[in-house]
């Protein structure tokens, strides 16, 4: 009798401890989750359309995940106002290879070279339409 009671207590304590740990785990996980736009920049991805459509930049990957500070890029490489860079005529891959814009880090040593892994950033017209929620152009079925 005594023995069973003791056993029950043990189970109860283990279960309680488990529940507590689970709750703790959830709170810590929940604490990791919030993305603070003031610290890490806008949550919404920046989608460039010039000179080619559908180049995606995500603040989270660069700030929260990679640990870069705002002044790593602003305002030396990029202006704070989104879409400023793509108005510049030199916002091209050639400039990137010369170390301008993204190429300041994406040079093959600090981060993957901008001459490789094209589709890591280029989501193309397919990606552009998906991100902008637009119906893909030229996919009509008039002819069938």
């Amino acid at each position: 009798m005594n023995c069973t009671k003791h056993g029950f207590k043990k189970i109860l304590s283990v279960a309680l401890a488990g529940a507590f740990l689970l709750a703790l785990g959830q709170t810590t996980r929940a604490a990791e989750k919030p993305y603070d736009e003031d610290t890490y920049g806008p949550a919404k991805p920046i989608v460039f359309a010039k000179p080619v459509k559908g180049v995606v930049f995500t603040h989270k990957i660069h700030t929260m995940d990679a640990g870069l500070a705002c002044d790593s890029c602003h305002s030396g490489l990029f202006e704070m106002a989104a879409g400023t860079a793509e108005q510049n005529p030199d916002f091209t891959m050639k400039s990137l290879y010369e170390g301008k814009y993204c190429g300041a880090c994406h040079d093959g040593s600090m981060a993957f070279s901008s001459k490789t892994r094209c589709t890591a950033c280029h989501a193309g017209v397919h990606g552009y339409n998906k991100l902008m929620g637009a119906a893909p152009a030229g996919e009509g079925h008039g002819g069938h």
Partner: peptide
């Protein structure tokens, strides 16, 4: 390929391809 689709645009213009084609 970065799916800029300039090839598709140029093709449509050059060869008078309709919007659905």
């Amino acid at each position: 390929c970065i799916d800029c689709e300039r090839c598709m645009e140029a093709c449509k213009q050059t060869n008078h391809v309709p919007s659905y084609g």
